[in-house]
Design a protein around this nucleic acid. Sequence first.
DNA 1: CTTATCCAATCAAGTTTTCCGATAAGTATC
DNA 2: GATACTTATCGGAAAACTTGATTGGATAAG
Lengths: 304, 304
Amino acid sequence: MEAHPTLDQLEIFLAVVEEGGFSAAARKLNRAQSVISYGVSNLEAQLGLQLFERTGTRQPRLTESGASLLQDARRMIAGLQMLRARAHGLAQGLEGEVRLAVDVLVPMPVLTVVLESFRTAYPTVGVRLYTGALGAAADVVMRGEANIGIVGEAMSSLPELVSHLVGGNQISPVAAPSHPLARADAPVPKAVLREYPQVVISDLSRWTDGRDFHVYALNTWRVSDLATKHALISAGLGWGGLPVWLIHDELESGRLVALSLEPYPPSNYSMFAIRRDDKPFGPAASWMAERFEAAFADFSRIRK
Amino acid sequence: MEAHPTLDQLEIFLAVVEEGGFSAAARKLNRAQSVISYGVSNLEAQLGLQLFERTGTRQPRLTESGASLLQDARRMIAGLQMLRARAHGLAQGLEGEVRLAVDVLVPMPVLTVVLESFRTAYPTVGVRLYTGALGAAADVVMRGEANIGIVGEAMSSLPELVSHLVGGNQISPVAAPSHPLARADAPVPKAVLREYPQVVISDLSRWTDGRDFHVYALNTWRVSDLATKHALISAGLGWGGLPVWLIHDELESGRLVALSLEPYPPSNYSMFAIRRDDKPFGPAASWMAERFEAAFADFSRIRK
DNA sequence: CTTATCCAATCAAGTTTTCCGATAAGTATC
DNA sequence: GATACTTATCGGAAAACTTGATTGGATAAG
């Protein structure tokens, strides 16, 4: 009653079920047949019930109870294999977890493709994901909460960070078709531009405090995330820069219009993988950084 | 390398982490302190890594690897307890699984309340849920695929079934307010009624084949589920009976109108728990049947 | 500074468990 | 009925586990 079932016993149990017999299980596990018999009867004694119906018939059959417990046994063995795989990875220097901070400008298709392939390549390495605008993602890396960040150019040049170019991102100033700028003569000079409210992502981290990028208007809407910026611009409340991947369909269908502005041409916003200089990548993190580079390349190839 | 970690070792590991020390873990587990030492170092050897940082310090601290594996270890022990609990239940005659077939007329709030309380009362008993209209649910019980059914009156009187009244269900003929019957003089006689298309749930099981209940119209829409019936009636394509619990809000707001029909008054449709006479309920199934009765009672009390 | 206390590691010895190989008893198939 | 295959069981050997005592080290109190 005190005694626990053993993983060994559960493994025997599974082998018997899968192979359909005690002897076959013994062969599969490379152990004596008596061990199987012994193991099964011990397991049955500890659980206080019969797992197999073996009334002299050639093949023992699972009882109903056995079938119910089979699922638990499978879970246990799967968990064991997971644990062993993780331990094996850790023993070889793999991280137990990668904490990734991404800027909101990283195209979602790139992010999902990378995460998906990462999961199959490193099933034992957990992923923790932080997202933030502009400085926020870099800030998380600076504080050591994330060990890899994918951020824009401006953030990657801080002295405590090591950065590596992984790809680019087309940003274009846009507005709703009903917006006056959409119908103005191109290119719009700076002096005109500043008269129209601009939607700007603002960020509360200390690294970008007070700095503005491509802000020309006197009047700004400050939002904290890309979705809100997108919504405000779509609603015609103002103009602003948005990544082309996000609004590709809307540009095609005319629900948004690309603006031609003198001081703000459509620009390629480079993205960098960053880490703190005193926290080198483990194998999984550096694999992930390479994968981001490849995914960015694939992504811009498809867009063209 | 071949040797598996043992559940015993994992339990020791957890105890050390929770108690914060080897000796404390020994006290908790009522075992000699050397066992803890032995067990931890064996586990570390088998996994090929260090779990604790113990550089002469008073309290051993988890390494990063240890923290990663801790979660797996917890899962394993939780799984073990689940398995043992299920085995304990099975040994005492509990079912490993209850297969429940419900008629679509069972109010969803009743069903969810019962399933929720069942899950807390019998966490080790799995539930498989079948839903169907009219005969379908009873059919599943007849065929032995489900061991408990909650069905309407007509299905419960088959000779191979044992049935028990668990509650009732108000059914009312209704139509959209735009429907001619909604504005007709009440009560509508049968001869008039048959001129308007009726939406009827039809069921393909052999037990109700060819039988119809409360079908008066010459022209019928035959659908296979309640949601479709509901949608067709709401759209004004026809009239038909719907359970009051489903359309309570729509009756209040006037989006549906209760009809007063001479041959089809609002009726109480009784619901029965059924089982095959040669397959008696186990303890969990009979608890569930009782719970359905209580839930139906609560439900109709609240509706009043 | 000394002493007492608590801790983890290790060792030797006894006990229990597990394993193997052989054997027995039984069942399908030919 | 012979044969080839099962599962159960037993005895002896090997391995693993447990215990209790001891050691060396770190902390806290006197």
